[in-house]
């Protein structure tokens, strides 16, 4: 099902959400990121380029209280997320949500993630052309995964319905949407200029000397994993109160495979002591290990790990140049 909405009516549609529910969309700022957008900010929504920071933190939070404890009792937090509409997610961002859904909602049902995810609507924004020179989603077989997808056609937007939730939204604002009888072809959905990655099969390349090109430029600063929309590793900490050291909370924070502490176990053994091992681990998890387990590449080709790297390590180029 495809609908059409006039360009100037899109804001009416979004303002409607911002008024009644929570609207999350990209704002430019110093570095573009997804933020809660108030009604009067709808006109400032930034769609020119993709965002520097992903929308990940709205679902898989940077800092989440898993439970509180007092003496020997555990109290689980109330998990309530208001109805949230995400607008402006690119195809890569949408697939990133899909991959995190696999991790946190399929085999393991993570209540914290699910609570944040359940009441959210994913409204995508199609890139006709790669919005950044770092993009490489073309090779990664991205799927259709959205409630609504917006295609910018200058005077109007085509809106493709991807789920029942999407249908529901259209119904709610039916005066703004015109039903049109077309389909958007696979060819149209292809993003131009995003085929930089020449091969995603790196199985036999683990010992290739070319990885060293990246390792030498790596500070192990974890910018790549923190800016990645799919990276989902976390660590748990207990925080206690001074007034009662048996009272406190257990907190979940983002973690990163790029640092030594990540693979440290009891007895102070660190499994991935060498920078090279940590560097390769991320890329192999993105393009190999996740695929072995879930059948798809974890990486969605948004290029944020390259854009945000202090030395701009381009692992795509490194892989491409490997013989």
């Amino acid at each position: 099902m495809v609908y059409r909405i006039k360009r100037d009516e899109l804001n009416i549609f979004l303002e409607g959400f911002a008024r009644k529910n929570q609207l999350v969309a990209p704002l430019k700022g110093k570095l573009a990121k997804f933020e809660l957008v108030k009604e009067e900010q709808v006109k400032d929504i930034y769609l020119e380029k993709n965002t520097y920071f992903p929308a990940k933190e709205f679902f898989f939070k940077k800092n989440e209280t898993v439970f509180t404890f007092k003496d020997n009792k555990i109290q689980e937090p109330k998990l309530e997320t208001p109805k949230r509409i995400f607008f402006g997610l690119r195809r890569c961002d949408l697939n990133a949500v899909k991959h995190q859904d696999k991790v946190f909602m399929e085999q393991i049902k993570d209540p914290y993630y699910m609570a944040a995810r359940e009441n959210s609507y994913l409204l995508g924004f199609h890139c006709w052309e790669a919005p950044s020179k770092y993009c490489f989603c073309g090779t990664l077989n991205l799927a259709d995964y959205y409630d609504l997808m917006f295609y910018d056609k200058k005077d109007y937007f085509l809106v493709e319905v991807g789920s029942d939730k999407g249908k529901e939204l259209i119904k709610e604002f039916k005066t703004l949407f015109e039903d049109i009888d077309i389909t958007i072809t696979k060819e149209e959905k292809k993003i131009k200029g995003a085929d930089r990655l020449l091969k995603d099969d790196i199985k036999g390349l683990y010992d290739h000397p070319d990885w060293q090109k990246g390792v030498n430029q790596c500070l192990s600063c974890a910018a790549c994993t923190n800016l990645c929309p799919t990276c989902y590793c976390f660590e748990l900490h207990d925080e206690t109160k001074t007034s009662n050291i048996q009272e406190g909370k257990r907190v979940r924070n983002w973690s990163s495979c790029q640092v030594l502490d990540f693979s440290r176990v009891a007895g102070e053994h660190v499994f991935r002591q060498k920078r090279e091992e940590r560097f390769k681990h991320r890329i192999y998890h993105q393009l190999e290990y996740f695929k072995e387990r879930y059948g798809v590449n974890m990486c969605v080709g948004c290029g944020r790990c390259i854009q945000g790297c202090p030395t701009r390590i381009d692992f795509v180029q490194i892989i491409n140049e490997m013989k």
Partner: peptide, 15 residues
């Protein structure tokens, strides 16, 4: 023991 960057990026700072 991890570098300052880890928390810095999580705090959404510009590098």
């Amino acid at each position: 023991s991890s570098p300052v960057c880890v928390e810095c990026r999580q705090n959404g700072n510009e590098c």
